[in-house]
Every structure is written in structure tokens, then in C-alpha cells.
Amino acid sequence: MFKKQIIRLARIAVAMGAMIGGPAAAQEYPVKPIQMIVPFGQGGATDQVARLMAAPLEEALGQPVVIINQPGAGGAIGLSNLTKARPDGYTVAIGSDSTLGARPLMSETGYDADSFTMIARLVQIPSGVAVRADSPYETLNDLVQALKTGRLAYSGSGVASGPHLAMAVFLAQQRVQATFVNSDSNQDGLVKLLSGEVDFLTGGGSNFPALFGEDGQSDIRVLGLAAEERWPFMPDVPTYREQGFDYVNSQWFGLVAPAGAPQEIVDELSSKIKAMVETPEFSQRLEGFFFNAAYLGPTEMDALVKEDMQNVRPVLAEIGLLKN
């Protein structure tokens, strides 16, 4: 008697669940809070961009966007855990140039580039190279020439990080070599540069403007930025191309979901993000971090990751980081 009632109740519950859950999932996404994994700690630039995005996204989607900080291994741990989540569009993560494509080529991460559905690229930062202000190298060409004759050391935020790979690919293109000395972060690399331990520093452009005073005085000199055109935050610094080196490279962040996320949800999210990224308010907030808004759709972002992997694979093999 009692048992029957329970079974009946359960049937009703299942039926109701199907009615609410089934069609709604496809048509009225989202019906519950969205979790956004930020694979870096609180307070970092990525975390702040994610939190900047959360508020306008909540408004556009009508559901809370909950930030989950899951730091470790330069962003790989959060991504690895993302791939274990259900691909229903309710768990997404912030990925970056080096973590999506290059990292799985190097170590057992539990994922590769195909484990993700790309949603949208959000921001980018041109790669750059800096030396001490009292360094004899005035231009990028001086540096490359010096590398042809002698051995110099450089540093950047972590082995196999975006900045390290950016410089490694550039050096490989110029057929020169330099010794990489690891740092834990860009600031740690800056310490090594200023203490004279290394000769040059590779890093995202966003790290440099705060080091310059109003009249341009600084302890460092930025030799070049690998952007397509001059970077608005440092208009005096020439691009690599202007100096005769055909090399464009940037660090970027984008939103990804686990592989197999429904196409319509990906398109929905991507279009909402596009609208948000293109608002002037968002760009203005980004300027505080010296980031450029740089939206790319799912297919373009996917192509970008694949292209980066193509470029970086031979370099990884050369410096001995390719996973066997």
C-alpha cells in the first residue's frame, strides 16, 4: 500500500522531471547556475577577467555564473578537471594559449586539445621581450645578432608557459639559441632580469606598462612586441615586423566547455560573449589590466589552438619537452 504510493509518487516525479528538464535543456538554456572554472588563483589577472565577465553574463543569461578557482600547474589542473564534468554547458572554464594546445603535448594532463569544445576567445596580450635599461641591446636586431655569436640567458614565467614558448618559437625561427632559466612568475623573471642573472625577459605585454613612469623612465627597455600593429598601451615600442622579423604571437584567454557540449548551447554562449566583449564598458575595464578585447568564435578559436600546436610541436621536440 505504502510502497505503491511511493512508486506512484516517483513516477510522477520522473514525469515532471522529464517535462521540465528535457525540452528546457535544449530550448531555454540555462535553467540553473553555470559554474566557471578559473584555473588560476584568486586575484590573478585571469581571475579578475573572469569576474569582470561574470556580472554581464549573468545579466545576459538570467542565471548566476559561479566562479570556481582551481589553480595549479599553470592552468592545466583546472582544465583537466573540466574534462571530467558533464558536457551540458553548465560547466565551463577559462583556457589559455599554452594550456589548451601545448601543455598536453608535454606531459600527462589527462586531456588534449580535442577534449574541449571551444566557445570563444576573450582577450589577448602581445608577447614581448625586454632587457635592462643599461643593456647594450637597443633593438631586437641587436639582440638577435648577439645571440648569433654568444650565448645569452633569458627567463619568463615558468618553463613551457606561453611567454617561454613564444620566445622559443621565435629563437628557433631565427636559428639561434639561448639558455632558458625558469621563473615562477613574470615578477620572478623580472627579479632575475634586474639582478643581472639573465640578459632578457620574455613576457606578455601587459606586464610592462606599469614599470614605466609618466615621462617614460624605467629600469627596463622593451625591445619589441609581437603584435600585428603597434600596441595602444605602449605606442612607442615597435613591433617585431617593423624591425624586420615576421613574427606575430600573443597570449590569450578563452572560454571552453568539455568536448561534446551541444552546438546550440555553444553558439548561444558564444554570441552572448561576443556582444559583451564588444561593449565599450568591457574594453574599458580590460584597459585596467592592459588587455585587449579579442573575440573569436568557436571555429576560429579551434583553428587557432590547432595552428599554435603545429608551430610549437617541433620547438618542443627541439628543447626536449615533447612527451614520448
Binding site: V159, A160, F180, I319, G320, L321, N324
Partner: peptide, 16 residues
């Protein structure tokens, strides 16, 4: 013994 056996095929990786 465990550490030694796991260290043997570690490789050298990147860096100078």
C-alpha cells in the same frame, strides 16, 4: 627503492 625506480626514466626535459 620506489624513488630510485621512478627516477631512472625521468628524462632531462628543457632548459640549459
Amino acid at each position: 627503492a620506489l624513488v630510485v625506480s621512478m627516477s631512472l626514466d625521468m628524462g632531462t626535459g628543457a632548459g640549459g
